[in-house]
Each structure stands twice: as structure tokens, then as C-alpha cells.
């Protein structure tokens, strides 16, 4: 059984007199433990798709079901990692930011235990030296790592990543991509990774959902059979890159 099942999903926005159809009858599914990329040009509705899955938006028609049950509103079983560096609360330290959802979800029996869990996840994103720093004292890459740790800490069914590395410089982005892959492989979490960067999708994911725009719809779902670790300079990589580029 698929972990997440999307059927005939449509969603439109009304701006003034115009009604804009953003997603048209989308169908896709996500398997447990896979890293799925949703790839498309800007404005193809990929962020809207993620927000629908997160429950921030309601579909006009169609359905999304998680483990066979239809979704109702946002919940901690689907945690979003945003592109915006501001997703950490500035009034909490890095550690407190990660502890906060643990407290809300009543993970761990004591504060000490929760802090222990948070420290473990922060160590995995190599922020153990910065536990007591406030977000404004961190670089963009560190903020995104902290956000990743926060998302991982509550062990959601699915992590929804909305171009989390798009605002970073190339060097940092590569580091974070590798870090994400490592964590994903170790933790067997399920990730939907939205990006407009073909290389990123090819580097990271098992499958790539290629979307077309106005209205947003699935153009093709591609299996990414490249062997890991993936080499951007290999012929296979370039071939696939060309194929996807052609689709877009």
C-alpha cells in the first residue's frame, strides 16, 4: 500500500475577478521510505501541492489520503520544511526550537529527555556546537539545518520540503544535499522534496514527478535508477538531465 495517495486533486485561487486554476486533476502516490522529488518551473503549483498535503490549504476537489485515511487539516504527521530562513522562532535558541514540538507532541517524559532527543538530532545536522545560539546568530545554511533537525525530531510520517536549499549558495547547498541524503538513508524517513532544480532532483530522489504549468499537472513520473552516490558528471546523469530538460 502507498503511504500517501493523491487522487484527482484540483485547486484554484480567486484573485479579484479572475479564477486561476493552479492544480488540475493531479494524481500521484508516495511509497513509504522513498525520497520523491516534485520538479517543475515556478508557478506550476508544486508549492500549492505541498501546502495541500500539509493541510494548510483545502482541495477544491479530489482527495489526499495518508495510510488510507483521508486528511483533515494540518498535523504533526506531515512536517514542512520551508525555504524561508525565518521558520525558526527567533525567541528560542536552536535547542529550544527543536524541543518545542517535542513538548507539544509530548515526546519524552521529561524536559531532560526531550533535550536529549533534540541534541541527538542537532548532532546529526552538525549543530551540536550551536545549541544555545539564537537563530539570528546563525547563517542561512545553519538555520535550514536546524529546521531539518526540528522536522526530524518528531519523526513524522512524511517530511514535506519546499525548496529548502534554494536560497543558499552553491557550496552550502551541496553540503546540505549530502547531509539530507545521509540522514534519509539512516532514518528511512519518507520525503517529498519540491524543487525547480533538475540537478537537485536527480541527485536526491528515487522518483521524480515532473510537472507542467498553467494549470499545474503531472507530465511524467520518472524512476531515477542512477546508482548512489550519484555523479553529476557521469553520462547517465547527463542523459537523464537532458530528458527532463526536454520535458520542461
Amino acid at each position: 500500500m502507498n503511504l500517501l495517495e493523491i487522487k484527482d486533486l484540483s485547486r484554484s485561487f480567486v484573485t479579484g475577478k479572475n479564477k486561476l486554476l493552479v492544480l488540475q486533476r493531479m494524481n500521484m502516490s508516495v511509497k513509504k521510505g522513498e525520497l520523491l522529488s516534485v520538479l517543475g518551473p515556478s508557478g506550476c503549483g508544486k508549492s500549492t501541492l505541498l501546502r495541500l498535503i500539509a493541510g494548510f490549504l483545502k482541495p477544491d476537489s479530489g482527495s489526499i489520503s495518508l495510510k488510507g485515511k483521508p486528511l483533515s487539516g494540518p498535523d504533526a504527521d506531515r512536517i514542512m520544511v520551508f525555504q524561508d530562513f525565518n521558520q525558526l522562532f527567533p525567541w528560542k535558541t536552536v535547542l529550544q526550537n527543536v524541543v518545542f514540538p517535542l513538548k507539544l507532541k509530548k515526546v519524552g517524559s521529561s524536559r531532560k529527555e526531550r533535550e536529549e532527543i533534540a541534541r541527538r538530532y542537532l548532532a546529526r545536522v552538525q549543530l551540536d556546537e550551536f545549541l544555545h545560539f539564537y537563530p539570528h546568530q546563525l547563517s542561512g545554511g545553519m538555520k535550514q539545518r536546524a529546521a531539518l533537525a526540528r522536522a526530524l525530531a518528531t519523526s513524522p510520517e512524511i517530511m514535506l520540503m519546499d525548496e529548502p536549499f534554494a536560497s543558499l549558495d552553491g557550496q552550502t547547498r551541496s553540503t546540505l544535499q549530502e547531509m539530507l541524503l545521509k540522514i534519509w538513508q539512516e532514518s528511512e524517513s519518507t520525503i517529498i522534496f519540491v524543487t525547480h532544480d533538475i540537478r537537485e532532483a536527480l541527485l536526491l530522489s528515487d522518483r521524480i514527478v515532473v510537472m507542467g504549468s498553467s494549470p499545474g499537472r503531472v507530465k511524467k513520473v520518472m524512476e531515477n535508477k542512477l546508482t548512489r552516490p550519484r555523479d553529476q558528471l557521469s553520462r547517465d546523469f547527463t542523459e537523464m538531465y537532458k530528458e527532463i530538460y526536454g520535458l520542461l
Partner: peptide, 14 residues
């Protein structure tokens, strides 16, 4: 208040 704070909160079911 940036909308994202609220979204993060909602995300954790607040």
C-alpha cells in the same frame, strides 16, 4: 508577524 510562524504552529497541530 511573519505568516510562517503561524504555519509552523499549525503544522504541529496548535
Amino acid at each position: 508577524i511573519p505568516e510562517i510562524y503561524r504555519l509552523v504552529g499549525e503544522n504541529y497541530g496548535l
